[in-house]
Design a protein around this nucleic acid. Structure first.
Lengths: 337, 337
DNA sequence: TTGAAAGCGCTAACAT
DNA sequence: ATGTTAGCGCTTTCAA
């Protein structure tokens, strides 16, 4: 008897022999083509099942020029990658997208910099190991994106600067979202609205800052020097907000929820209260914002949907770019609605 | 002129033509074999560089029967995977191991259960897409492990039950580590030592509970019914500890730092103080334990090293199993040292 | 509806 | 030291 376990090194040819057909027929059965007599198909399927046969993906990929595998390249320190709920949501969405398109995804964790996996990765994913890659734009992702473009690799960049027409990109409405947040603040009568965000290497930071300025202009306010850039971390938000508090802002718009959390700390440290003494609005809609006290009012970006649609973009024939809408979610950090 | 970008569809043969040599010679250069005249080698390398050529991994994998890719299969909900610092450390170690062995790793996130990626994954990784897989033993990993065994796939299981001789496994000294922790507690004069841990489906939980019992026996104590099993989460630890506190233990040994954190909460809620009213020891040595107040005394397992050695095990010719030592790290949760 | 044959791009004998 | 040749296991014309 042949049980499973034999499947490891069987070939199409051998399956064909056992089923009394040619390898072509087995291939047809495997690929669900219809010109196979039901009776033959059943016989072949039986053999496949009882042998535990699985086709060799390398051989398949070689001839068909596709692997069914897409790569997620995260040029991020592993600790950061794993600590950040943004990536968690993103991967969730990508998984959804993959099952819709019959793909499987693999995360290639690649800390930036020399000696790391990112160097070894470029050639691997640059060729046909993966059918395409989804890559998140971070300050260090430029070279990798360039390499992939040069190699004609299919790719979707999340959060890539809009002015680069060479890549398919997906993003959220950073600029209008920020504007909406700041207008919300202005609508609450706040005049001195400060901005806390990441430095200009972060593409989303640029857009969110621009949205902030848009809203100030639209409402006849000015930034009044109330702008601080720092790392998009809790600490960065803390530092930026702390230095801003010297100038007595009435509100702080933080370009990320994470930085907003830092702002909360800085505010608490001064003995100020949110929202009575100062209002805060964040951006991202991460779960963490909901457990802050008061609950953070924030611009929610549809991260899961971004992941899902990124896969769609990768799989579609006419890869366009996509910008998804955001929504302001009211918490208690700006006072009563 | 041919710039990079052309590399996408070049073959070895074409590189050979441009360099005026046969494809074999190019292959030799590519694979760093020495029987190539330096001058020829230089010429070939020049062509490779200027064309941006990269060999087709599928073709390579097909003939050489190896891909240089190893898979990390984490049968875990994505949120859990990304939220847990254990995995972060593990992946860090695996990355180290990969660069030592000239491999690249990809994480296959696979939530357990039907409809998810885990089903699609089995055949893919079951064949030669990856040279081997590292899989963390969780309650749901049984079927996947069986499938991989059946397929003769190279595999290292982290934390697999020791009595299964069919798989290469790597683990830490869960049982002796727990015993050491509990003996430490006993050494501080604690008699009523409670245990809080995950249910028996978690292999490490079984071992850690056994170590607890070992130590009780060795020190002439008994568990006195002071044992509670619950989810290995903060909440689980909280619940388990809360119910245990009714029986007035003098110390709690938590099988994971995460559960210990829950125990801290339950203890605080009763108005008890650590270590004066009750001592706590954890297991894992996660970063989070160090920011608890007081700092958690815990059994540190070398997670990064586990990852690194797992790759070594996968890459080595004689795959043995490995059990790494743990160390007790003193914090303030048991009183002065 | 099925089989035979060619070939995907590479590595590894085997010649030379 | 280098070239020639034969596959790796699959998909896909092309015939039958």
């Amino acid at each position: 008897m042949s049980g499973p376990g034999d499947g490891a090194h069987l070939t199409l040819e051998q399956i064909g022999q056992r089923a009394g057909v040619s390898r072509s027929t087995v291939s047809r059965v495997l690929n669900g083509q219809r010109d196979v007599r039901p009776e033959v198909r059943a016989r072949v399927e039986a053999v496949i099942a009882e042998t535990g046969y699985h086709p060799n993906p390398a051989a398949r990929a070689l001839v068909s020029r596709r692997s069914g595998l897409i790569g997620l390249v995260m040029l991020t320190e592993v600790d950061e990658l794993f600590g950040d709920p943004y990536y968690s949501a993103l991967v969730n969405g990508i998984q959804q997208g993959c099952s819709e398109h019959d793909l499987i995804s693999a995360i290639f964790p690649a800390a930036p910099g020399p000696g790391s996996q990112s160097e070894a990765l470029t050639p691997q994913i640059g060729q046909r190991f993966v059918d395409g890659v989804i890559i998140t734009a971070v300050p260090q992702s430029g070279p990798m994106i360039e390499a992939l473009i040069a190699r004609g690799k299919r790719m979707v960049v999340i959060g890539h600067p809009a002015d680069d027409a060479r890549v398919t990109r997906i993003d959220v409405e950073n600029r209008p979202g920020s504007a909406q947040a700041v207008e919300h603040l202005a609508g609450h009568g706040k005049r001195r609205i400060a901005y806390v965000g990441p430095p200009a290497e972060y593409p989303f930071g640029v857009d969110r800052h621009a949205g902030y300025l848009d809203a100030l202009t639209a409402t006849g306010l000015s930034d009044d020097g109330l702008v601080q850039f720092d790392d998009p971390s809790v600490e960065g938000g803390y530092r930026a907000a702390a230095s801003l508090l010297d100038h007595e802002p009435e509100a702080i718009f933080a370009a990320t929820d994470t930085m907003a959390e830092g702002a909360y700390r800085a505010i608490a440290e001064r003995g100020l209260r949110i929202p009575d003494d100062i209002a805060v609005v964040g951006f991202d809609g991460l779960p963490r914002g909901a457990v802050l006290d008061p609950v953070l009012t924030t611009v929610v970006q549809p991260v899961v949907e971004v992941g899902r649609r990124a896969v769609g973009l990768l799989a579609s024939d006419q890869p366009d770019s996509l910008v998804l809408p955001v929504t302001l979610r009211l918490g208690g950090s700006c006072g009563p609605h």
